[in-house]
Design a protein around this nucleic acid. Structure first.
Length: 274
DNA sequence: CGCTCGGCCTGTGCGC
DNA sequence: TGCGCACAGGCCGAGC
């Protein structure tokens, strides 16, 4: 579900609620979500620790614990992780409960149950392949125009497929890819290598822009996404193509098209994007 | 090595 | 109202 802006928003809204707090209990309602080590070892390693800080890499959340271990959470499509105070209403999709002092809790909820949780020491993070191989993130110093242009060169994939590849650029997902391509005026099914230098630069700037906007608006909530306090984001009100099939393009009035590109539902303006 | 595709799961909304 | 189908914000591994 969540892409980098959503996960970053969760990190920001959850940090103050969990740092310095002791995880008194861990209830695992769906053990198969624990990918490393086993569910029982996970429970034993996390129980009784205190969260020292909360970091993010790409779409991964990293809870640094005071026993030297790091709890890593990936929300995939429909995962949510948020703080609930004592007496808060139940979430019907709760899969893991981290009990905090005074009856508060950190909930991991997930309707499709595709999310993944791990607990590892720092020097074993390589076990999480998707984390270890993550490419530079938008807005980071490593994500330069030069890097982006070099990455497009000679690639036979569609530009959409390239932008979704986490090993090349970490953190983009289906919504922000469609939005960046729309902002740059580039059709999603173009071969990556076919972009001119000027198009590559426009797209580079668009990627950074849509990610920054997404964070500013607290993420995009269609259905499942909630921040670390359980609140919805507002970026869904600022989308120009995603989820707007058959609606008029705000620039030219042409109906927004939807078709499959790189195996994903893809939205674009047939007139504004070339 | 680069790339495409199917699979993993379950829920929701729509058309009939 | 009920039913079947399309679709879903992600990623991994098999196979070409």
């Amino acid at each position: 579900m969540p892409e980098m802006p959503e996960v970053e928003t969760i990190r920001r809204t959850l940090t103050d609620k969990v740092t310095g707090r002791r995880i008194e209990r861990v209830d695992i309602l769906l053990p198969r979500l624990i990918k490393w080590p086993g569910a029982e070892e996970f429970r034993a390693l996390v129980t009784g620790t205190t969260v020292e800080r909360l970091d993010r890499r790409g779409k991964y959340l990293l809870f640094r614990l005071d026993n030297g271990y790091i709890m890593v959470v990936h929300l995939r499509m429909t995962g949510r992780i948020y703080f609930v105070a004592t007496g808060a209403p139940q979430d019907r999709f709760t899969r893991v409960v981290f009990g905090l002092p005074g009856g508060d809790a950190l909930l991991y909820a997930d309707s499709r149950t595709l999310g993944t949780l791990y607990v590892l020491p720092e020097n074993e993070l390589w076990r999480i392949a998707g984390l270890a191989s993550l490419g530079p993130e938008p807005l980071s110093p490593e994500f330069t125009l030069q890097y982006f242009r070099d990455t497009l060169r000679d690639r036979k994939v569609t530009i959409k497929g390239l932008l979704l590849n986490q090993q090349l650029i970490g953190g983009l997902g289906n919504i922000y890819v469609d939005e960046a391509l729309a902002a740059a005026g580039v059709r999603p099914d173009r071969k990556a290598a076919s972009l001119t230098d000027e198009e590559a630069q426009r797209l580079y700037e668009a990627v950074n822009f849509v990610i920054a906007q997404g964070i500013e608006h607290g993420g995009t909530t269609f259905r499942d996404y909630r921040d670390g306090a359980g609140q919805a984001g507002s970026h869904q009100h600022h989308l120009r193509v995603y989820g707007r099939r058959n609606e008029a393009c705000e620039v030219c009035g042409t109906p927004i098209a939807r078709e499959e590109v790189a195996g994903r539902g893809t939205h674009y303006c047939p007139r504004c994007q070339h």
